[in-house]
Design a protein around this nucleic acid. Structure first.
Length: 549
RNA sequence: GGCCUUGUGGUCAAGCGGUUAAGACGGAGCCCUCUCAAGGCUCAAUCCCGGGUUCGAUUCCCGGCAGGGUCACCA
């Protein structure tokens, strides 16, 4: 068979470059020793979730701690999946979490010498290499229809054989020259398949940088490398791109492990050296009592936008991810409390081998701690950003008074006391925590544990003695006086010694006042709250509460 | 189902032939305290099962079992 002619018929373009040209166009990168080139290669659906951030962070950390490059390549070979604005959305989402690219699609950088970074724009490169494989007898056209493929599959299932296009099932592999040209003349659509030389009985060990030594079986599948629209499949594009973009370390999900043999064979027939691989375990979640991997379709609540909307502090999300990515991160952090996470020596070898369950409690804890470290002014900026994007118009109105909000934050965060409070977990919840400081958002549902007459007595008596100029101790002493007059024990020891002699202790008396002022049984320091509200509004709330008892 | 892979408290996990089997989150309790938050202290809770190898296995080997992944002209 005249393979040269066949290749020319199948891939007739005249503007394909000679193969060596591509080596010249995309020379090996000049990087310091040990530098790793990693990449994120999403399909442009625009939807990225925590699991994507997780592996993107690993890529980014490894590239940037080794002095390498982290780039973005868009795998848009499947037209059906394309979503408008997806690429920008990916970049924006990741940037919010401080994961930034050095190079790639829609990234303006002088480093963009290995593009184009959209696979559809690289069609000629793939086709040039596919053509070469056909000429060398390592690839061939296949005219099988979906139905024929289905029939093969059924037969294989019935005989309990490995499904797929291989060996005696690879009908088109042995088509005569005549049959091929007849099919072509008849206008039958075709794909290009790899003519696999592998033997599925052969097994060997492959070193994965995360999983360690794994057993792989030689590929014997005649996989499709060029689809009927002339665009490559993932497998073929992966080999060509990661070679010419000079990727040194491919970090990808473990769902790719099973197609690794295909990739190994592809690199071999193309004559490309293989990059190192690290297959990450997926983030899991429990769903209906079953553990399963995070999915785009089923878990919209794990979308990165969800976390932005809920107002999670980006650094907290990153730190949480760091703790599961490299479990020694937390320990390192405790030893270096003032160091930034970027100073941590991230190592791929430390990455876990089994999938971690997503732990919201842990994220919340880290988030609270991170947030408690901010100054009230920084906290204001963080909350304000959230309010501007996701808050109500009332929230935005409240946040126009920066000075007032910062005073509230000083209290809520405990900025002026020796111990920081950790009340704010994320922006959305933090903003709601401050509602009672604004009259238009203050909608209390009073619920007291004491008789109306007692409540009224405490409230009105305290209103008479309240002076905003009092310091905390004086304020509390006055409350004690009022409480004692109403039948409460002014001293806890007295109450404990003889509980039946009193209607309650100071905690109970304070609660009456607290509910009246904040609408809630729990709050930070009441004296300060009243100070922030001011005398007039404080007294108005006491009066309103006494009224409604 | 075949193939690959994983299996230490509820969760994330150190440890990798001899340990009182770290730590963190969560849970329980105590202290502090005007409540809450924070903080301090204490407690409960783990080596999937069965065989080997060995003086000795959580650690090594084999077999089960359980979980996960994958078997497309999707990535």
């Amino acid at each position: 068979m005249d393979l040269k002619k066949l290749a020319q018929t199948l891939i007739p373009e005249s503007d394909l470059l000679p193969l060596e040209k591509y080596e010249e166009m995309y020379p090996p990168r000049k990087l310091p020793k040990g530098a790793q080139v990693t990449r994120l290669a999403p399909s442009p659906t625009g939807f990225i979730h925590l699991g994507n951030l997780y592996s993107a962070l690993a890529d980014e950390r490894i590239a940037h701690t080794t002095g390498g490059i982290f780039y973005l390549r868009i795998e848009d070979t499947d037209e059906k999946r394309r979503v408008e604005g997806a690429v920008e959305s990916v970049i924006r989402s990741l940037k919010y979490f401080n994961v930034v690219f050095d190079e790639g699609a829609e990234i303006s950088s002088p480093l963009n010498n290995y593009g184009p970074y959209y696979q559809r724009q690289r069609a000629k490169i793939y086709r040039a290499f596919a053509k070469d494989l056909i000429e060398r007898g390592l690839a061939y056209p296949c005219f099988c229809t979906e139905e024929e493929l289905g029939a093969i599959r059924e037969e294989q299932t019935a005989e309990k054989l490995t499904p797929g296009y291989y060996g005696r099932f690879a009908k088109c592999r042995n088509l005569s020259e005549r049959q091929i040209y007849d099919n072509l003349a008849a206008g039958k659509p075709f794909v290009i398949r790899l003519k696999s030389m592998g033997d599925s009985a052969v097994k060997y060990t492959f070193r994965d940088r995360i999983k360690g030594d794994i057993t792989v079986t030689e590929n014997d599948q005649d996989v499709v490398i060029l689809k009927s629209d002339g665009i490559p499949t993932y497998h073929f594009a992966h080999a060509v791109d990661d070679h010419f973009m000079r990727t040194t370390l491919v970090i990808r999900g473990e769902e790719w492990l099973s197609s690794l043999p295909v990739h190994i064979e592809l690199f071999k027939v193309l004559g490309f050296p293989m990059p190192a691989y690290g297959h990450t375990c997926s983030l899991m979640k429990v769903d209906g009592g079953v553990k399963r991997k995070l999915s785009k379709r089923k878990d919209p609540e794990l979308s990165l936008d969800y976390y932005r909307r809920a107002g999670y502090y980006p650094k907290a999300v990153i730190k949480y991810l760091m703790t599961i990515l490299n479990s020694n991160f937390e320990e390192w952090e405790r030893k270096n409390p003032s160091a930034d996470y970027t100073q941590f020596k991230f190592t791929i070898e430390k990455m876990g081998k089994s999938g971690a369950l997503f732990d919201l409690d842990k994220l919340n804890d880290i988030s609270k701690t991170e947030l408690s470290l901010l100054s009230p002014d920084e906290m204001f900026d963080f909350l304000n950003d959230w309010v501007c994007e996701f808050g109500s118009s009332a929230d935005r109105e409240h946040f126009k008074n920066r000075e007032y909000v910062v005073r509230i934050l000083e209290l809520i965060m405990g900025a002026n006391s020796k111990k920081r409070r950790k009340d704010i977990e994320r922006a959305e919840q933090g903003v709601r925590l401050m509602d009672y400081f604004f009259d238009d958002a203050f909608a209390p549902e009073y619920s007291y544990r004491f008789a109306p007459s007692t409540v009224k007595a405490v409230l009105s008596s305290f209103a008479q003695v309240y002076d905003p100029a009092d310091d905390n101790q004086t304020w509390f002493a006055k409350l004690k006086g009022v409480a004692a007059a109403c039948g409460f024990a002014a001293e806890t020891s007295d109450y404990k010694a003889n509980p039946s002699a009193y209607i309650g202790n100071m905690a109970d008396a304070s609660e009456i006042l607290r509910i009246a002022v904040t609408g809630m049984p729990n709050s930070p320091d009441l004296c300060t709250i009243m100070g922030i509200l001011g005398k007039q509004r404080s007294l108005a709330r006491l009066a309103a509460a006494a009224e409604k008892v």
